[in-house]
Design a protein around this nucleic acid. Structure first.
Lengths: 235, 235
DNA sequence: GCGTTTAAGCTTCCATGGAAGTTGGCATGC
DNA sequence: GCATGCCAACTTCCATGGAAGCTTAAACGC
C-alpha cells in the first residue's frame, strides 16, 4: 500500500497512551481538583470501577503517584490521598526556593540572545498578571503566574530541575488554590517578577538568584501565617 | 496466649518487606554496582528469573525505578539502564548545588544547640575524610564524604530535600565512582567542609549557603572537564 | 454488662495466561 | 547481490483469580 511509509523512530513518535498512563493522569487531575479530597481513602477496585478499567493499570498508576508523594498506600487497607500539613507547605517552599533560584541563575547565564528571549516571555506573563489583576480576575492571575514560574524552570535547560519543580508544584496545587482566595490581592508579585526578568535579561546572575529566592521567601512568609491563622491542620 | 500483646500501631511498626520492595532494592543496588551496566537492556522475565520471583513484583519495581530516573522501559522491547551523558552530570550538579546550599542555610538557621550538634558531626565526618586521605584509602574517603553530604540533607529538617538529594545521589553514584579514581587527590574538600561546618555552628546563614554552593561548584568544575578529557560519551 | 474470641468481608499482593506490539531473520522475487 | 514482505520469537501490557493480611463487629463465655 502506498500509505505504508517507513515509520522513522524518533523521540516525537506518537505513542498510544497506555491505560496506566491514562489512569495516572486522570488520578492526578482528580487529586488536583479535589475530586478526591485530601485524606480521602478508597480501594483500587473502586477507582478501577470508576475509571472503567481493570485493577492492574490503576495499581501501577498508584505506584507512580506514591513515588510523586501524592498518595500513600496503606498495606491491605486502601490508598489515601496525602493531606498537606502546614509543615509540608514549609518543606515545599524550601524546595521551590532552592530550585527556582538556581533556575534563575542558569537563565541569567544564558547567551545574550537566549536570555533576552526568555526575559521577553517572562515579562509578557507578568503583563498578563497585571492585566488580570486590574480586571479582578484571580483565576487568570493564577494562570499567568503559573506560566511565569513554569517558564523559569522550563527554559533553564535542566530537565531534572523541571521535573522536580513540576512534582513539587503538583503537591502544592491544592494549597495554592486555597490561599489564592484567602490572601490579599497579590499586587507585589508583578514588581518582583519584573526585577527577575530584568536581571535575567541583563545577565546579572547573582541578582537573578537573589530576586527569585526573595520572591518565594516573601510569598512563604505571607502564606504560612495565613494558613496558621485560619487554624487549618491539613488540606 | 501471654505473648499475644496488643500491637500498638506506630510509625516504627516493622512491616514485612514485600517482594516489590525487595526487587526495588536489589535492582537499585545492582545498577549502582554495575551488575547491570549503563545501557544494559534486558527483559523483566529475565530479571524475575534472576531474582527468583514472578514477573509482577519486578514489573512494579521497575515502574518505581523509572520514576527515579534510573531505568527506562522501552515499550515491548525491554527495560534499559539509563546511561549518564556529561550533560546529565551537569544537570545533576545543578540540582545538588541548589539543594545542598538550601539545606546548609536551614542548618545554620537552627537553634544554637541543634546546629552545634550537627556541626560537630559534620566535623567528625570531615576528620574521617582527612584520616582516610592520609592512609591513601580512597574508598574510606568516599564513604566519609558521603556521610558528610548525607548529614547536610538529613538534618536540615526537610524530608523532601532529603528525598530529592537521595534520588539524585543514586543517579550520580556511578559517575562518582568513576571520577574518584580519575581525579587528583581530593585534598581541598576538607577545608571547604570545615568552613561549612563552622558557618553552621556560628549560625551564619548566608555564609553556610555560600560555602555549600561553592564547594559543589568547584567539584563540578573539576570533574566535568575531567570527564570530557577522557572522551567518555556515557556511563 | 464486659472483655475476649472468632469469623466474615474488606483490602493489597502476587502469579499466571492471553492480547497486542516490536524485532530480526529468512524466504522470495528480481 | 539486494530490496521487500512475511513470519516466528520475544516483549510489555492488561485481566483475573487466589493468597495473605487488616478491620470490624457479631458471637460467646463469664
Amino acid at each position: 500500500m502506498a500509505s505504508k511509509v517507513k515509520q522513522v523512530r524518533t523521540a516525537a513518535t506518537v505513542r498510544k497512551p497506555s491505560l496506566v498512563e491514562d489512569a495516572y493522569r486522570a488520578l492526578k487531575d482528580a487529586i488536583r481538583d479535589n475530586v478526591f479530597p485530601p485524606g480521602y481513602q478508597g480501594s483500587e477496585q473502586e477507582i478501577a470501577l470508576r475509571l472503567g478499567m481493570s485493577r492492574t493499570p490503576v495499581h501501577e498508576a498508584i505506584i507512580r503517584l506514591q513515588e510523586d508523594g501524592l498518595v500513600r498506600v496503606l498495606s491491605k487497607r486502601g490508598v489515601q490521598v496525602c493531606p498537606l500539613s502546614p509543615d509540608d507547605i514549609r518543606e515545599i517552599y524550601d524546595v521551590v526556593i532552592a530550585i527556582e533560584a538556581r533556575a534563575a541563575e542558569l537563565l541569567a547565564a544564558l547567551p545574550l540572545e537566549a536570555r533576552s528571549q526568555v526575559a521577553k516571555e517572562l515579562e509578557e506573563a507578568t503583563a498578563r498578571m497585571e492585566q488580570a489583576l486590574r480586571r479582578d480576575d484571580l483565576h487568570a492571575w493564577a494562570t499567568a503566574d503559573d506560566q511565569f514560574h513554569r517558564l523559569l524552570v522550563e527554559r533553564c535547560g535542566n530537565s531534572r530541575i523541571l521535573r522536580i519543580a513540576q512534582t513539587i508544584t503538583d503537591q502544592a496545587h491544592r494549597a495554592r488554590m486555597l490561599t489564592l482566595r484567602l490572601r490579599s490581592k497579590p499586587t507585589g508579585s508583578a514588581a518582583a517578577h519584573r526585577a527577575m526578568a530584568e536581571a535575567i535579561r541583563t545577565g546579572q546572575v547573582a541578582e537573578a538568584h537573589h530576586q527569585a529566592r526573595q520572591h518565594r521567601i516573601d510569598a512563604r512568609d505571607e502564606l504560612l501565617p495565613l494558613i496558621a491563622s485560619v487554624g487549618i491542620k491539613h488540606l
